[in-house]
Every structure is written in structure tokens, then in C-alpha cells.
């Protein structure tokens, strides 16, 4: 039985270590959309052998978290970690013989239900890493005073290690919890609810669309949104 778990442990380690590199794009390096849920979830899904389910989860999470902006010193939910964990878990579980008959959308919904409660944790973790980064200033100042100029300036890059370590650890934790909880959730779900689950995934993009419309110039954008919807219906 324990031998059956080895592929999952290996997969968790792989996604945690490689996914954390992708998560660096979020704040520490480049910031070029590599860390967006659409890309992150597909990447994790591909690592676990099913990029299609990763892409589906990525699209849902992309819209769901789109209205959370890192404006000023505000720290939004780390949607990259959630997307990586969701994509990896869903792809890994979709390959199990017990889930062969399970629709991708149903499985994606179950995974999201176990992943989203970690949102507050990822915000706290991000805040903790940024708090920890403050020691780098003291270290840099001390070294500059000691005349070690080049090594002092490079202390800035130690922040990357802090972000990487926290992301890898958190990813492993979220993935393990989800890999354990999803099968349990599938057991507990009443049979009559099955036809609903594949369609219920739509609530996440719907929340995202609503959130984004609220964030913009509401009256004008709402008029445009309703107008385009009606036009599409007519034509």
C-alpha cells in the first residue's frame, strides 16, 4: 500500500520544486505573467500527465482571482500556488483507475473546494516572507560599512531564496492536503449531486466576471456588458 504512494510523493516533490520557480515570477523576478493561474495550472497539469485538466482549472482560477490586484503594499491571494497545486492534484487524481469515469469538470470542482480554503494562508505566508526580507537591509548596511561592497549589494538576491523556499514548502503542504481530501470528498458526496458537479464549476469564472465588472467604471461597463450579451443572443 505504501508503495502506491511513492508516485504521489515524487509528483508532489517535483511540482513543489519546479512550480516554486514559476512562482518567483509573481513578485521576485520578471513579473511576466508566467505565474498567472492559466499558465501555472497547465504547467503543473503537464508535469502530472494531464495538461487539459490543468488548463481548465487555470481558466477558472484566472478569472476568479483576476480582480485581486497587488496595488500599493496590498498583498493579494497567491493564486499561483493555488493554481499549481490544483493543476497538479487534479491531473494526478484523473489518472487513477477509480476516477476514470469521473468527468474532468467534476474533478476540477472537487479539487478547487479543497484548494481554495488555503487562500488566506498564502496571503499570510507572503506577508511573512516580506517581513523576513527586512533583515537583508541590516545585513547589506553592515557589509557596506565593512567595505564589502559587491557582496553587500548581492544580498538583494537572497530574497529570491526566501520567496522560493516559502513557495516550495507551501506547495507541498497544499498538494498533500488536497490529494488526501479529494478522495474523501468524492466518497462523501451524495449520488443525487453528481449531475450537478460538472456544471457547478461555472460559479468560479462567474464570480470572477462579477468581481472584475465591479472593479471597473461600473455604470458604463455594465451597459457595455449587457449590450454585448444581448447582441450575441440576437445574432
Amino acid at each position: 500500500m505504501w508503495l502506491d504512494l511513492i508516485p504521489f510523493v515524487w509528483l508532489t516533490a517535483k511540482i513543489s520544486l519546479l512550480g516554486a520557480v514559476l512562482a518567483l515570477d509573481r513578485t521576485a523576478l520578471f513579473q511576466g505573467m508566467l505565474s498567472r493561474p492559466l499558465i501555472a495550472a497547465t504547467f503543473a497539469g503537464a508535469l502530472a500527465g494531464n495538461w487539459e485538466i490543468g488548463l481548465l482549472l487555470g481558466a477558472s482560477l484566472e478569472l476568479y482571482f483576476l480582480c485581486e490586484m497587488p496595488v500599493g503594499s496590498n498583498i493579494p491571494t497567491d493564486d499561483t500556488l493555488l493554481a499549481l497545486a490544483a493543476g497538479g492534484c487534479a491531473a494526478a487524481l484523473s489518472g487513477l483507475p477509480a476516477n476514470v469515469n469521473l468527468d474532468d469538470k467534476s474533478l476540477a470542482l472537487m479539487v478547487l473546494l479543497t484548494i481554495l480554503p488555503w487562500a488566506a494562508f498564502t496571503r499570510k505566508l507572503d506577508g511573512w516572507v516580506r517581513d523576513r526580507n527586512a533583515w537583508l537591509i541590516d545585513e547589506m548596511e553592515t557589509r557596506l560599512l565593512a567595505g564589502e561592497n559587491s557582496s553587500a549589494i548581492n544580498f538583494h538576491l537572497y530574497g529570491v531564496l526566501n520567496f522560493y523556499g516559502a513557495a516550495a514548502g507551501a506547495l507541498a503542504l497544499i498538494m498533500i492536503s488536497s490529494l488526501l481530501l479529494v478522495p474523501l470528498l468524492l466518497l462523501l458526496l451524495p449520488v443525487w449531486a453528481w449531475p450537478l458537479t460538472d456544471r457547478l464549476l461555472l460559479v468560479f469564472p462567474a464570480v470572477g466576471i462579477a468581481g472584475l465588472l465591479c472593479k471597473m467604471n461600473q455604470k458604463r461597463q455594465l451597459a457595455v456588458f449587457v449590450g454585448i450579451s444581448m447582441l450575441l443572443l440576437v445574432f
Binding site: L29, G127, D131, F155, L157, N162
Partner: peptide, 20 residues
């Protein structure tokens, strides 16, 4: 400057990125 926020912190935010 592409790793501007590598050491973002609440104390002085992006100062290390600027110096780097």
C-alpha cells in the same frame, strides 16, 4: 531591474532592488 522586487519588505519596500 527585472528582479526589482526580489527582496521586497515592509520596512523599506523596494529599496534594495533600487540599490542593486
Amino acid at each position: 531591474s527585472l528582479c526589482w522586487q526580489a527582496s521586497w519588505n515592509f520596512a523599506r519596500m523596494q529599496c534594495l532592488g533600487l540599490a542593486y
